[in-house]
Nucleic acid binder design. Structure first.
Lengths: 232, 232
DNA sequence: CAGCTACTGACAGTTTTTGTCAGTAGCCTT
DNA sequence: AAGGCTACTGACAAAAACTGTCAGTAGCTG
């Protein structure tokens, strides 16, 4: 087997595994010697490939590098760049930072001669939302959704009525200027949707919930589609 | 020079040029023989690198492949994915298609074990805007900005007053649910900003304009910053 | 058509790679 | 602490790949 092919196969094998793989295993699969595998790994390391090896353990990808490079066309990249500006203006502070990092990466790889004609320069996004209280709530809620923590929330409806709820947060929806939280409400025993700008107070509880086949975001969306068709 | 290094340098040289480069030129720069260059090019072709060569002409990158692959972390990718959803919901139909293509590309490369924990599934974006008249205008305006065509526009202010304007379109701003057009107005001889949802009629003229040091988007933004500070 | 280019095969000399062997060092379990 | 497992490295001879020269084919452009 040609060396270049073997290097690519090592990369593929490393990316397809959660657990470590030893030089012996690689040598068997690729029908070569362990010494050659050690040399190949060194070549990968020299070229910056994020592999790490521990004596007595084996090799694996360094955490955080499981996602391979993506190749976009110029048009797709314009959509990505505009989208990142929107995230910077209308999501939460953490996402805004990630979006800025992503934008810097993109700027770094665009050839100079493509920068002059880059349409994204003419597409701007306002940036006032991130300092609102709704945006602070947004970040807390997003984390609670991911880690599945109950929320206790004081809410004020459009008609001025106040209520207190204990919720299983499931998703966030962006409506342009407004975000809403989709949650299972323990008070009403049903799904409910709440506008983030009407939240009076919010506490992320330390108790975890779990979703199942009857209470989860996918079911709620399916329910909405049955009720309203494809408008959702 | 090592073969692997030379291959990378050929890629770099091809990416840095607008015009073709011959095998002789490559051989001189890389201090090797033309026969070796022909072999290297074949290796690049065999591995899928998008180079094309024409007898009597020379080599160049296939159009559409000037932008190299980009490697995002999981957090950055979350921002990209949310951003693409926002573009799909709140820009124009062309950008929405590009955004969908980009999303498909991303989905194709995310390893299966990372899909389960992918937070983007819980972040949704409403999709009603693209069928509005404002979104149709948005696409026409974006093209006119890029190609620098004058616009003739019938506009209705918030107070109900109608006006007709001839404009040099310079940029589009997203305010969440609303887009505005930044333009140089020939009627007022000054910059003006117009809400897309208040446009009554719009015609893209066949006459081209040109910007200079005094009339362009960057100057306008600088002017705004001097007037309002960093709020813009 | 002439001049330029990309392209390919053959071959001998040069360079790189490979597997075997021996030895070093670290991690994990008992 | 010892043993078994792993990653790691240098040396060397044999095998493989690469390189430049040469000769010839084919296509593009003015």
């Amino acid at each position: 087997m040609a060396k270049a092919d073997r290097l690519l196969k090592i990369i593929t094998l490393l990316k397809g595994r959660r657990t470590v793989i030893t030089a012996r295993q690689l040598a068997e699969v690729l029908e070569t010697s362990e010494r050659t595998i050690y040399r190949d790994i060194q070549v990968l390391l020299d070229t910056g490939f994020p592999v790490e090896g521990e004596a007595g353990v084996g090799y694996r990808l360094q955490p955080g590098f499981e996602i391979p490079p993506i190749m976009f066309t110029a048009e797709q990249l314009l959509a990505v760049q505009l989208g990142l500006k929107m995230v910077q203006g209308w999501s939460d502070k953490e996402l805004a930072i990630s979006a800025e990092e992503a934008r810097v990466k993109i700027e770094a790889v665009i050839p100079d001669r493509l920068k002059e004609t880059n349409q994204q320069n003419c597409l701007l996004v306002s940036k006032h939302y991130l300092n609102t209280e709704a945006a602070q709530h947004s970040l807390s809620i997003r984390r609670a959704i991911q880690q599945q923590y109950y929320l206790t929330m004081a809410y004020k409806k459009a008609d001025g009525e106040h209520s207190k709820r204990v919720l299983m947060p499931l998703g966030l929806v962006y409506w342009g200027q407004k975000w809403t939280l989709i949650a299972w409400c323990l008070l009403r025993h049903d799904y409910r949707e709440f506008r983030l700008d009407r939240i009076q107070a919010l506490v992320v509880e330390s108790e975890k919930f779990s979703t199942d086949e009857s209470i989860n975001l996918t079911s709620y969306l399916k329910l909405l589609r049955e009720l309203y068709g494809e408008q959702c």
